[in-house]
Design a protein around this nucleic acid. Structure first.
Lengths: 241, 241
DNA sequence: CGCTGTCTTGAAAGGACTCAACGCCGGTGG
DNA sequence: CCACCGGCGTTGAGTCCTTTCAAGACAGCG
């Protein structure tokens, strides 16, 4: 299968053969992580960044008193901690949600990329900027939407992100988060997540069987969430020189 | 006065004379904005990024139904929308909180920087990564802290950011946000912000007279907020080659 | 088969919200 | 020069969304 990072970056515009070779080369070192395993521990200072090749992962922040906030969900093709390249210490850790195949990209190699491949550098920078845009939308969700809207919004977002990498069939996709995870992602209690999901189900908007979620009425779900996918910048074009 | 962008980047490590000249040159075009004026309208596609030279600004997202979330506060030296360089369309607009002097940096010039100055490119990239780190902490605040903790946390953060650019005297600094602004930044109602501020005041933690805020008991304020300034990466060093 | 993690349900409590009104102050226009 | 106005901060009261606590059901697993 094609390297999911290359596929993702190519959505932003064509890459040269040389650039693809570089990407292929620097993502050659891989490892497998089991569900719930730490990929990048909170507070660590890794010498490489972790690229998700397959599986789902999440980023999370812990308060000293133990409360937890999930700050991002990562899918294949996502760099879970490209920011550690320049930020050095990881404020928020990364853990596997499902079994994950991960490529370790040495910071040294990223440095070489920034020295010799301006276009690739901009493409990688772009991915971190999109991360930021998603963060801001999550902030809006956390700050200004109620539980029902938050969950609806998240499901719309995840669907579109998974769809862009071919992991959606008939509006069904894998959702490997427990209700406790969802509650930590959306600032709710597990009890309330449970009740809100039941509400969405009984309104006929979604169906969920185990770890697979189906959106039955995407239009209505989008309306509830006031969802507009532009912020994902999935096809954002990046000019070459 | 020294260009505040140069000062800020120099905190991450020395810049060459040539790099400083470049920065000086590309930030030469400036403009003044009045309080409440839009610096970058939501939804626009600017051909330059806006650097705050003096004054305070904010970034904000609007939901279609009008609810608003403030996603960042910007102080001198901050690029309010460096991300528009690669993201093109602005999801969240930028407005002046006080009168602002702003430098417009042409995206064309940024492109040249990414072509010819790898170190400067990394330094600029770093600033957007720090933005992201701050976003994630705000998410944690919005998702998992109560009103008192959120406000305490924000005041600790703003103090440290202003302190790093010399705008704090005896733990006093300018806070040009109305209570309505604060409520949109922290996902609260204005009424509740008002009551929470009163509580912080009557506990002797802060004093506020008009637009100036004083922290009287920083240690206790930090304790309440479980505040740790590492995520601001203010002195994060960036190696040269 | 028992354990453990996850999902579900009920009931009561509470933090934050809405609505509504009032005071204060600086700006402005007659 | 002063009355009017709008923005902002403040206060009270009632409501509601969400939480907490507690316990039971269910399913996967060793």
């Amino acid at each position: 299968m094609q390297n999911p990072l290359i596929s993702k970056l190519e959505k932003h515009g064509p890459l040269s053969e040389e650039e693809k070779e570089v990407l292929q080369r620097i993502t050659a070192r891989t490892a497998i992580f089991e569900p719930r395993e730490d990929i990048v521990p909170e507070g660590s200072t890794p010498s490489h960044s972790s690229l998700i090749l397959s599986g789902f992962a999440m980023r999370h922040n812990h308060l000293p008193d133990g409360r937890r906030q999930i700050t991002a969900i990562h899918v294949p093709g996502d760099f879970a901690d490209l920011h550690s390249f320049l930020l050095k210490t990881i404020d928020d850790g990364v853990s596997a949600l499902t079994a994950c195949r991960v490529a370790f990209v040495a910071h040294k190699d990223l440095r070489d990329v920034t020295r010799n491949f301006p276009h690739l550098t901009r493409a990688l920078w772009l991915t971190t900027l999109i991360d930021g845009a998603v963060h801001r939308v999550w902030m809006t969700s956390l700050g200004r939407m109620d539980a029902r809207e938050r969950l609806a919004h998240f499901l719309c977002e995840l669907r579109d992100r998974l769809d862009s990498i071919g992991l959606v069939r008939d509006d069904s996709f894998e959702l490997p988060l427990t209700q406790a995870d969802l509650s930590d992602a959306f600032g709710l209690s597990t009890v309330h997540v449970n009740r809100t999901l039941q509400e969405l189900r009984s309104d006929g908007l979604i169906t969920s069987t185990g770890k697979v979620l189906t959106i039955n009425d995407r239009k209505e779900l989008r309306r509830i969430a006031q969802y507009n996918p532009d912020y994902l910048h999935i096809d954002q074009k990046l000019e070459r020189d």
